Amino acid sequence: MLKHQMKVAQSLLSSLAEGGRGASGTPYPIQPEKKLRLYEFEGSPFCRRVREVLTVLNLDYDVYPCPKGGQRYRQEMKKLGGKKQFPFLVDENTGDQLYESQDIIHHLFKHYGHSGKTPRKYARYPKIPVAAFAGTLVNGARGVWVNQAVLQREAPKQLLELWGFEASPYTRIVRAELSELELPYTFHNVAKERWQDQGLAVLRLKPGKYIPLAGGKREQILKIMGNNVQVPYLADPNTGVKLFESADIVQYLKQQYGA
């Protein structure tokens, strides 16, 4: 438990290093008809930029983890795009395949933002992602390298499903584990939609029973989670397992898909 709490502390510092980007998003996303596919790995600062914007737009997408040393999806994305560079976005709705993080960000706002324009805050990221890189370091570089013990194992037949948002320190711990195990999954963004959503599920700024924004995405997600919106939340259609707590999820992933 102490080791896990250390992970939480490091993950929280990683979120703070990036100024908390990737926590809030629109309650009324323009979800693409066909799922976006993102080839990336958790520890990449350039991939993090894209994940932040996906949270801002509150979009769901499929993740194919490509940690360093990984074999499952690095070759697959090279066949698609011609080179091993991350992040790599495949959008079957528009027919686009994009590499550069800034190009991907412009693409996302153009097609799935309500104004069609990239906000200034996200239009000019620095060429050297110092803050995001610092976030990777303070997080112990988790999610950067593949777990060598799983290289010979086949991927599960169905994608796992994970609910969370980019800046959630608990969600980051789970994403790092999924990255190291090369486990593909659908990421359901559960961005904070207003000030009443701020805080932990059991300790929000607004006291009393949690009531999501009417018609918002969180209102729909509440039907899946039950009494409250809490992340991370993992559902594995391969086994029927459904879990909330990050420590429990990590333990399950290691036992089910690890060495």
Rank of each mutant, 00 (worst) to 15 (best):
H111V: 03
H111D: 05
H111G: 06
H111Q: 07
Y112Q: 04
G113I: 02
G113L: 07
H114Q: 11
H114D: 14
S115Q: 11
S115K: 13
K117T: 12
K117W: 02
T118G: 05
P119I: 08
P119T: 09
P119D: 07
P119S: 10
R120D: 14
R120H: 09
K121D: 09
K121E: 15
K121P: 00
K121G: 04
K121Y: 08
Y122Q: 03
A123C: 03
R124M: 08
Y125M: 15
P126Y: 01
K127V: 09
K127D: 14
K127P: 01
K127C: 05
K127N: 14
K127T: 11
I128W: 06
P129F: 03
P129N: 02
P129H: 06
V130F: 12
V130L: 13
V130R: 07
V130T: 09
A131M: 11
A132R: 04
A132F: 06
A132Q: 12
A132W: 01
F133I: 05
F133R: 11
A134E: 06
A134T: 11
A134P: 00
G135M: 02
T136M: 10
T136A: 11
T136D: 01
T136Y: 00
T136V: 00
L137C: 12
V138G: 02
V138A: 03
V138W: 02
V138F: 01
V138T: 07
N139C: 09
N139L: 08
N139M: 10
G140E: 06
G140V: 07
G140K: 08
A141R: 13
A141Y: 14
R142S: 11
